[in-house]
Amino acid sequence: MSYRFITLTFANQVATLRLNRPEVHNAFDDVMISELLDAFQQIEQAPDCRLVVLASNGRNFSAGADLGWMRSMADKNYDENMADAGELAQLMQRLDELSKPTIALVQGAAFGGAVGLAACCDIVLAEQRTSFCLSEVKIGLIPAVISPYVMRAIGTRQARRYMLTAERFAATEALQMGLVHEIVDDFDTALTRYTDAMLGNSPAAVSAAKQLIADLDQQPIDATHQRLTIERIAAIRVSSEGQEGLSAFLEKRSPNWKKDSQ
């Protein structure tokens, strides 16, 4: 499928999804949201895809919501706005819940909903000059549908500051807060390092680990969740890839999935 505002390519077990509206700083509207949802579905269903890279073309990662689109929503009623916001909420949830690991490459500026996209990814790499801003309150709005993901990434205390002040914060601050994992000089070099690491791991185990993290996040460590962890490790141990991984380790050889990625 061809897209207007994004590009999606598959190569060497990696899906690269790029926002492609550089003339408006990759601001997203209902069309881009619909295209991203379709792309996520394709990625999820691609049997040979094991890793997802979320990036963008141009100087800036994304300016967040397109102002023209925002103006059009001002003319819609409550129910229409509910439906519209529901699409954005679905986008964030779909990205957050992808079974395959995701890496965001964030350059330039990431504003509003773009911070939400970053917060939904498993790993976020930024350049030294990258900046972030939860700018919604400046125009009388709130970062509503992205808030659960952003708060999980930076914590409630930092969210109180940056959601209320709409200050721009640098990549170094984002790193300290946990939104960014690493500040890099060159995306390609860093991405190769992460890609090699990811593709060297068991695909089933990576997917299971992602699901385990999601199920345990912010949950009390009680008997129910202890039981869950016991069941998950037991299941992965007796799985075909679990058995192959243990056998390869004991036999001091590479597991068969690592051979597939070389």
Score class of each variant (00 low, 15 high):
L117E: 08
L117P: 00
M73P: 00
S2I: 09
R232L: 12
Y149P: 00
P148L: 10
N26D: 08
T229V: 15
A223G: 11
S247G: 01
I123K: 03
A223W: 06
T7S: 14
R161E: 14
N20W: 03
D84E: 15
I139R: 13
F28L: 13
Q128H: 12
R232N: 08
Y194C: 01
L91P: 01
Y194H: 02
L36Q: 02
C120S: 08
Q176P: 01
L8R: 04
E182W: 03
V180M: 03
A248V: 07
E35Q: 01
Q93Y: 08
D260P: 00
P101K: 04
T189A: 13
G178R: 04
D222T: 09
M151L: 11
S254N: 11
G116R: 02
C121P: 00
G242A: 05
L8T: 05
V53Q: 04
A110M: 15
L164N: 15
A208D: 13
S202M: 02
G58D: 10
L8C: 05
E241P: 00
C120A: 13
Y162C: 11
Y3A: 02
M1N: 05
G200E: 06
Q243D: 10
F40V: 07
C49L: 05
N57V: 12
Q90R: 14
K138C: 07
F132C: 04
N60G: 04
S56C: 05
L17W: 06
A235T: 14
F10K: 02
A214W: 09
D84L: 11
F187E: 07
A248L: 04
G112E: 07
C133I: 13
Q128T: 10
Q243F: 06
M82F: 12
F169Q: 05
Q93M: 09
E80F: 08
I233A: 09
L105I: 10
D186K: 01
S72T: 12
E231A: 15
D29C: 01
I142L: 12
G108W: 07
T192N: 14
P143W: 06
A65R: 01
L37A: 08
E241Q: 08
I123Q: 05
L250R: 01
F249L: 15
S261G: 05
R157Q: 15
I221G: 06
R237P: 00
E97P: 00
L125H: 03
T7K: 03
G68Q: 08
D79N: 09
S247T: 09
I103P: 03
G245D: 13
A174E: 08
N81Q: 15
L88K: 01
K100G: 03
V52T: 15
G58F: 09
L216Q: 08
A204W: 08
T156K: 13
F187T: 07
Y3M: 02
Y162G: 05
I230C: 11
L164D: 14
V238Y: 07
P148V: 12
Q93E: 14
I183W: 08
K138G: 13
E87C: 07
E35K: 00
A114T: 09
R21N: 09
A205Q: 07
I230P: 01
I233G: 02
Q158G: 01
S34V: 03
S34N: 05
D260R: 05
E173S: 10
I236N: 06
N57L: 10
E44N: 00
S135M: 13
